[in-house]
């Protein structure tokens, strides 16, 4: 519990000192959605506007979240804090979970808060907004976990953005399809409950297991 709280606090403090780092991902989200809103008019997507907007929003949130996670643990790796963490924290799981929660809360949640703005700019039917936010809530947790997993896999390589994207993108795809599918089904008035429940089940399972994988990778990163 101690490890969880101290990592969460530390992430909060670091974000407060450098708020622009978290603002990066939010700015990316707003820029991309506003560019799409001025370039794709209603006529181009006539008939299935909502389905199109849902897919776009999911993809942009995915990319923005990846951007926010790319630097996870890299500073700790550079300055030796990670070495201390690995040497002293047994088990590492609570501390990793604390960092994940902090990262989701301070860099992913601001992106989600901008989703209504994007939905409004892209003229998504207001009846679908809450469903979009609900599915993205689960989706963004998964994206954050996989984003950090990718960042940790490439620790110490430097300039790891492209490699990280290659490594973790395949992991994102099933969740992306499931989430977009659930939301589109809801928009079309079809049954969406199963897809929604599966999405949340996957999110809960990953919150339980991925931090163990991240903790193991952090230990391995200190073996060389």
């Amino acid at each position: 519990m101690n490890g969880f709280i101290s990592s969460f606090q530390r992430t909060a403090r670091l974000t407060a000192r450098h708020p622009l780092d978290a603002a990066h991902a939010v700015a990316f989200f707003i820029i991309v959605t506003s560019l799409i809103s001025v370039t794709v008019d209603n006529a181009t997507t006539s008939g299935n506007r909502d389905a199109f907007v849902i897919a776009i929003m999911w993809v942009v949130v995915l990319l923005a979240t990846m951007l926010g996670c790319a630097a996870a643990y890299s500073q700790d790796y550079e300055d030796g804090s990670l070495e201390l963490l690995v040497a002293h924290q047994r088990p590492l799981f609570p501390s990793v979970l604390g960092s994940m929660m902090g990262l989701w809360f301070f860099s992913t949640l601001p992106i989600l808060l901008c989703v209504p703005l994007g939905a409004w700019m892209l003229t998504l039917s207001t009846s679908v907004w809450w469903m979009l936010l609900l599915t993205l809530l689960a989706g963004s947790i998964v994206f954050t976990l996989f984003g950090v997993l990718g960042a940790v896999l490439t620790l110490g390589i430097g300039r790891n953005g492209v490699l990280m994207a290659l490594l973790v993108l395949p992991l994102y795809v099933p969740v992306l399809l499931l989430g977009v599918g659930a939301c589109q089904r809801y928009a079309n008035g079809e049954t969406f409950e199963f897809a929604l429940a599966s999405l949340f089940a996957i999110a809960v399972a990953l919150v339980t297991f991925v931090p163990f994988a991240i903790a193991a990778l952090l230990r391995v990163s200190q073996e060389y």
Binding site: R17, Q75, D79, G80, A87
Partner: peptide, 13 residues
């Protein structure tokens, strides 16, 4: 307790 060559101190904090 370990004091290594890397400081183990975050430069922002």
């Amino acid at each position: 307790v370990y004091v290594g060559q890397k400081s183990g101190l975050n430069p922002t904090l």
